[in-house]
């Protein structure tokens, strides 16, 4: 039995079923990310003045990732247009670029995550606060490449200094701290503060969408490509539907980038 309406639109909806399905799915996705964005707003507005970390992320790297995702979005639509012109080779070229962009995006994001997981803050027993990247950590000693934060100027000032990018940049030096002198040590992972918690939640979920989208596009592009010979219209529709998902992933990032990196 053939699955109905994979190519021809239904008379009542005016759409082939997969297209209706993807839009319903995207509607649920809007609510999923909407809930997380509203959580972000609650946390951001609820933070005491000056205590919300700003400039904690590397803007040039985030900008490059934005450009990578925008590039992948245009290659998806150009690939779909190539199929409409019966040019499978051109479609394959464009979608290969899309997959490479997806790898690029995830790679850059992984580098950013690595940077945060190796970025430490150390509070010593005498109240000093050190901030920097971990060079060495053993039973006796912790070595950071960073700087001391002037804790006497208050928590808000410390948050600003710890950001370390742009105008907050301070020269880094190697700091050795005895483990016995350490009161508290922790990296800038999700547990560091509410900002890193919402940052990892939002970008982690978005990253999973990038990986999922790339897997689907890759499946259609390689193992599933046989359908182009047997049922080209249905194949083109599959490409369109996977492309709609990919554009949604791009749309989410268009808002995530300024909200997390710039504001």
């Amino acid at each position: 039995m053939d699955i109905p309406y994979t190519v021809q639109p239904r008379r009542d909806t005016g759409l082939y079923n997969a297209k209706l399905g993807i839009w319903l799915f995207l509607a649920s996705e809007v609510m999923l990310f909407g809930a997380l964005f509203s959580s972000y707003i609650m946390l951001r507005v609820g933070a005491d003045i000056g205590e919300w970390p700003q400039r904690l992320l590397n803007v040039p790297i985030g900008t490059v990732n934005t450009l990578v995702l925008i590039t992948s979005s245009v290659t998806v639509v150009l690939g779909w247009a190539a199929l409409k012109q019966n040019n499978f080779a051109r479609y394959r070229l464009y979608q290969t670029i899309t997959i490479l962009c997806a790898f690029g995006f995830v790679g850059i994001k992984s580098y950013e995550y690595y940077d945060k997981f190796t970025h430490y803050q150390v509070i010593t027993n005498d109240g000093k606060v050190f901030d920097g990247h971990l060079i060495k950590r053993d039973k006796e000693l912790v070595v950071l490449s960073g700087f001391e934060i002037d804790a006497s100027k208050g928590k808000a000032h410390g948050v600003m200094e710890a950001s370390g990018h742009g105008p907050n940049h301070k020269p880094h030096k190697e700091i050795e701290i005895k483990t016995s002198d350490i009161k508290k040590i922790g990296n800038y992972g999700p547990a560091h503060n509410t900002y890193t918690a919402i940052y990892f939640t939002l970008t982690g979920l978005h990253g999973l969408h990038v990986i999922g989208g790339a897997l689907v596009i890759g499946y259609i592009l390689w193992p599933g490509a046989g359908m182009w010979k047997t049922d080209p219209e249905r194949y083109t529709n599959r490409v369109e539907v996977s492309g709609l998902f990919w554009h949604f992933v791009d749309l989410v990032w268009i808002f995530l980038f300024p909200v997390l990196y710039l504001l």
Binding site: T13, S73, V77, L251, I254, P258, V259
Partner: peptide
């Protein structure tokens, strides 16, 4: 300013790449 520019970019992606400028009423 940041959200205004982001909204314009989102409109361009949704309107043209996702073809929402020329879609069916159901969508």
């Amino acid at each position: 300013l940041a959200l205004f520019i982001a909204s314009i970019k989102a409109f361009l992606v949704a309107g043209y790449f996702m073809h929402l400028m020329d879609e069916k009423k159901m969508i």
